[in-house]
Amino acid sequence: MSSVKIELRKDQIEKIHEICKSFNYEGGELINVLHKCQHEFGYLPAEIQEVVAEQLKLSVAKVYGVVTFYSFFSMIPKGKFPISICTGTACYVRGAENVLAEFKKQLKIEVGETSPDGKFSLSCLRCVGACGLAPVVLVGEKTFGRVAPDGVKAILAEFEQ
């Protein structure tokens, strides 16, 4: 999994320390600590994992192992407009896969990646509870229903400006 090289600011490091402290520096709380960190920073770059490992007295390899095991965790910053395509049962049978393929084609990125300009990122999720609108696509906070592959361009255009 590739990552972007960043340098953490002092206050960011302190924030991670605070999160680790709130879980009593327990190695067994690693997943919860990572959850909180991802919530705080949006993603889990290598630099954050190093601080977490040091605080919880775990090896960085172990932390990285957990980050790469759970698909929820990401080492890539989300785009300004994160695109989530529902691939739950209802959306799937109504052609979500073709919609996903079109997003990949238009953005030239894979699921879990972010476009080079940092604008869009692509992910899949399972059921948003709006099966009547299947297939459903979320862009940021906005929901799109009954999306067909030929409607993808128009959705992206809405966020391009």
Binding site: L58, S59, A61, Y64
Partner: peptide
């Protein structure tokens, strides 16, 4: 701590 199982 050099090695860990990674990915799935």
């Amino acid at each position: 701590g050099a090695l860990s199982a990674v990915n799935r």
